[in-house]
């Protein structure tokens, strides 16, 4: 769900506080990564999703200031960046806890007891979907099918899929959880160099 009304198509009708308070300056290394990524596409604008993943991996979430920095690095209008950020659920427009706990709420997980997991998160950690624990350690999200339904009910904790889960198993995983691998680290490869060499 993107907008406050839960519809991707509808814009954020209610202005949401999204300013982090300080301008975002992307480090030189990130800017170089962005240039390399842009060179992998016939239209450099196509790099926006990997670039947003990278920026979010570094900053933890996408503030309005981060959008501005991305718009500049991507040579794109801010409005176009904003449009992309708000369409996709993996981009978070609010600060997040250090560990993400994404519990699947779709059919196979529902059939095998996802509701119990949500109830447990509420009772034990005091969080509903979309909320962060008071200590800032974790943010819970209710997500749609993560396509690991054979392990239903399941969750993605940090970067890794876990299941089948019980409340006790969930506690154990949460206690051990560390921030994991990131999307941007997973998609950098030799073809970037090969393509750069070609140009």
């Amino acid at each position: 769900m993107s907008g406050p009304d839960g519809h991707r198509g509808a814009a954020n009708l209610v202005p949401v506080e999204r300013e982090s308070g300080a301008p975002v300056v992307l480090p030189a290394e990130t800017l170089a990564w962005i240039e390399q990524r842009r060179a992998m596409y016939e239209d450099p604008r196509a790099a926006i999703l990997p670039v947003l993943h990278r920026v979010q991996d570094e900053l933890g979430w996408i503030s309005l200031e981060a959008e501005e920095a991305v718009a500049q690095a991507m040579r794109m209008p801010l409005a176009k960046v904003h449009e992309v950020v708000t369409f996709y659920t993996l981009f978070k427009t609010q600060p997040q806890g250090r560990i993400r706990v994404d519990i699947c709420q779709t059919m196979s997980c529902m059939l095998r007891g996802a509701r119990e997991l949500f109830a447990h998160m509420r009772d034990r950690y005091g969080v509903h979907p979309g909320e962060t624990t008071a200590d800032g350690r974790l943010t819970l999200h209710a997500v749609e099918c993560l396509c690991n339904c054979e392990c239903a009910p399941m969750a993605q904790i940090a970067d890794t899929y876990h299941g089948p889960l019980t409340p006790a198993k969930l506690d154990e995983l949460i206690a051990q959880a560390q921030p994991g691998e990131t999307v941007s680290a997973a998609v950098t490869g030799t073809c970037a160099a090969a393509i750069a060499e070609k140009r």
């Binding site: 991707r8 790099a47 999703l49 992309v84 369409f87 996709y88 659920t89 993996l90 999307v183 073809c191």
Partner: peptide, 27 residues
């Protein structure tokens, strides 16, 4: 050349033309 491109959480991007739009850097 083969490029791995990450999506960002939207079921509709499995639909082929939505996927193309998304790959081009749009909604």
């Amino acid at each position: 050349d083969v490029v791995v491109h990450p999506g960002a959480g939207a079921y509709i991007c499995g639909e082929e033309t939505a996927l193309i739009e998304s790959l081009e850097g749009k909604k």
